[in-house]
Design a protein around this nucleic acid. Structure first.
Lengths: 206, 206
DNA sequence: ACCGTACGATACCGATCGGTATCGAATGGC
DNA sequence: GCCATTCGATACCGATCGGTATCGTACGGT
């Protein structure tokens, strides 16, 4: 007998709160926020709306909690990048870029959760907006640290360029061919780091 | 004779269809698609839901029609770029970038309509999705033409880089300080064109 | 064994949504 | 002047939404 063969994942064993978060993550990412009702989330989590409201109080708060988890993943990517390439900010930047590039295929059908949430939540007072804002600020801060430590001239400009490229790549991956997007984004970021590192010696930069 | 009871003749009011499109453009851009009801659109257009459905049949079709108009604006930007800088593909590229950069402030609160729509319409069968896809393809085709004509090596890579930057800039503008974003994106695109033009020391660029 | 808590199930609420039906008034072409 | 078409207004429909109330039960700490 195989009592564990109930569901593909032993989701049923996790406490309701975790199951709800897993279900929300999946549904929000694949179908959007507004499109998904709390009922659908509860059903996929094999629980009820009541449990959802007992734990999160509001759908909006559940959305915010979901984004907090996604933001934590990105933060971990920065931590890993620094841990794996200590004292090598250039490699750290590339590692972060690689994290994004490797995540692109998973975003093929649906884009960046933060961008999508921003699109779906025009209300600046929405609790999720604060999470997004902090995430963006954190990401910029970490990147700025790496670019500065790497000795890139005009580190802010470098951060902007890297940010635009990574963000744009995620957006572009949402539509067309994705496989090449990963390679292209890596080549671009490599170019940013290399070019700016070697640019210090000659050209007249403002 | 009395200029009228019913309709003020002070300014020739546009036909209902145009008023609806204007209202839809404004509301969809500022508050999103799903968040805005047909009732709200009709009211802002100073007409009724019935008129809306008589002209567009469906809210989804209205969304698609709105995006067709937005896409036409972008297409016009490409046309203008080519018309104003005939035979100078590099300048054309910069003109297109400038068009996007100058449009950033208007996107401060809400981002790119296409990206937002993509986020709000996960259903690939939605009529608007086809409009978006064609728009992206068109944009890539035009950019590829310019990059190729400019003699840039690996024009596809250049197109990817420009596309990512422009797309990413629009996304980034949605959040933080915008003023610098315009300048930064121009400097980046200038860098792409210049750097790649001078990168080929051995090949003859015609 | 007891009891407080969390959980599951269900029924319900008010609001809003996209879309339709209907009807009177205005308008423009002939 | 006549008539077909368009437009405006309103009332309505079924569905779905976020959120709440209620109630019985399963479980864990003491």
């Amino acid at each position: 007998m195989a009592p564990t063969a109930r569901r593909p994942s032993r989701v049923a064993k996790l406490p309701p709160r975790e199951r709800i978060l897993d279900a929300a993550e999946e549904l929000f990412r694949d179908e959007g926020i507004r499109r998904v009702g709390v009922q659908a989330i509860a059903e996929r989590a094999e629980t009820t709306k009541m449990a959802l409201y007992r734990h999160f109080g509001t759908k909006d708060e559940l959305v915010a909690e979901w984004l907090r988890i996604v933001a934590a993943d990105y933060r971990a990517a920065f931590d890993d990048a620094e841990a794996e390439h200590p004292g090598l900010p250039g490699e750290q930047i590339l590692a972060v870029a690689r994290f994004v590039a490797e995540g692109l295929p998973a975003l093929t059908y649906r884009g960046c959760p933060f961008v999508n949430s921003l699109a779906e939540l025009p209300d600046r007072a929405h609790p999720a907006r604060q999470v997004i804002e902090e995430h963006k600020a954190h990401q910029a801060r970490r990147l700025l640290g790496m670019c500065t430590e790497a000795g890139l001239p005009e580190p802010e400009q470098a951060v902007a360029e890297i940010t635009f490229v990574l963000e744009g790549a995620q957006v572009s991956a949402q539509n067309g061919s994705v496989d090449q997007v990963g390679e292209r984004v890596m080549r671009i970021v490599e170019g940013v780091v290399d070019r700016r590192r070697s640019a210090v010696s000659g050209t007249s930069v403002g």
